[in-house]
């Protein structure tokens, strides 16, 4: 099983503002971690620092305990990486492009063909004799993803792995990643929230070069102050009775005659006021934060950081 770790990692280009500031996280074992944030948040920069395509201004990045900037060969030995838009040489065919990866990763010749066949089956690759230069963007992306899987490395670093793929191809890649995460450690950056929700068990939110939050996907609702609560009364409540809550909430929506969704400013004081007000309306059966989707969590979290901070 593999691991990756970044420790107080910072990156700055020249005298410009830092693109990554004091980022730390460590994962080991198996599973999929979503690395989320808006454009320019520092996601790709982090991945590049991990594989040694960039040198850190401060801090360290380790793959299986080894820094790629210090010992590239050993750091990348058990790592498959898909970063930005890789371009195998357009003059070579699919098999040749995967063959060089397999041989560089120490696969015996007969195993290379088996690995190519395995990747071909997993990702529905184009014909192996077809030149890279003749492939569509999606086909090239799948070949690059297959290259990262050659030799079955236990750690996978995937930067927008479904970028440029059509819906059917995205489903194929998500299925593959779901299978891989059982015995691989995957760090996957993406803008596609539903994709991360489907594949990843844990997430890291990054914004303006800083980690805002990292936790299990199913614990996000507890960690992020929700601005919505769901109230369920023991019996039906008329609409008029709920008007009473308007002063301390921004929106009151009926989910059913017993169940209401209330949006408020998210403060603890308002939450207490809301509960007390609801208890005055009638016996409260349940009072809880609304369930939070990954997308809602993202939207809740990201705007909280001022642009100039």
């Amino acid at each position: 099983m593999g691991s990756f770790e970044v420790s107080q990692l910072s990156k700055r280009y020249g005298a410009g503002p830092p693109v990554l500031q004091d980022v730390s996280f460590r994962y080991e074992g198996a599973g999929a971690i979503g690395y989320l944030g808006p454009n320019g948040a520092g996601k790709t920069t982090t991945l590049k620092l991990l594989v040694g395509l960039l040198r850190p201004t401060e801090g360290h990045a380790y793959l299986n305990g080894v820094e790629a900037t210090v010992d590239r060969k050993n750091a990348l030995w058990d790592v498959g990486a898909l970063i930005e838009t890789p371009e195998p040489y357009p003059t070579l065919n699919v098999h040749e492009s995967l063959d060089v990866v397999g041989r560089a990763r120490g696969l015996p010749r007969d195993e290379i063909d088996r690995e190519v066949d395995r990747c071909h089956a997993l990702l529905d690759l184009p014909p192996l004799g077809q030149r890279i230069g003749w492939l569509s963007k999606g086909q090239r992306q799948r070949v690059s993803l297959a290259a990262s899987l050659m030799g079955d490395p236990p750690v996978l670093l995937l930067d927008e792995p479904t970028s440029g793929l059509d819906p059917a191809e995205r489903v194929l890649v998500r299925r593959t990643l779901n299978g891989l995460k059982r015995d691989h450690l995957i760090l996957m950056s993406s803008h596609q929230m539903f994709e991360v929700a489907e594949v990843c068990d844990q997430v890291i939110f990054v914004h303006q070069g800083r980690v805002l939050l990292q936790d299990r996907v199913d614990r996000l609702a507890e960690r992020i102050r929700s601005r919505q609560v769901d109230v369920e009364f023991e019996g039906p409540v008329p609409v008029d009775a709920m008007q009473f809550l308007r002063e301390i909430s921004t929106e009151v929506v009926a989910v059913s005659d017993r169940r209401w969704r209330i949006t408020f400013d998210g403060t603890d004081a308002a939450r207490v006021q809301l509960l007390q007000a609801c208890q005055k309306i009638g016996p409260v059966f349940q009072f809880a934060n609304s369930s939070l989707s990954l997308e809602e969590a993202y939207l809740e979290l990201i705007p909280k950081v001022p642009e100039d901070s």
Partner: peptide, 28 residues
């Protein structure tokens, strides 16, 4: 922090236990 597995629909079998040898710089 240890990543966890499970909780998602199972995909195709992917682990192949591929034998590899340490490629020397000269081989590279």
């Amino acid at each position: 922090m240890r990543a966890s597995a499970g909780g998602s629909p199972a995909g195709p079998e992917t682990r192949s236990g591929v034998p590899r040898h340490r490629t020397s710089d000269l081989e590279h």
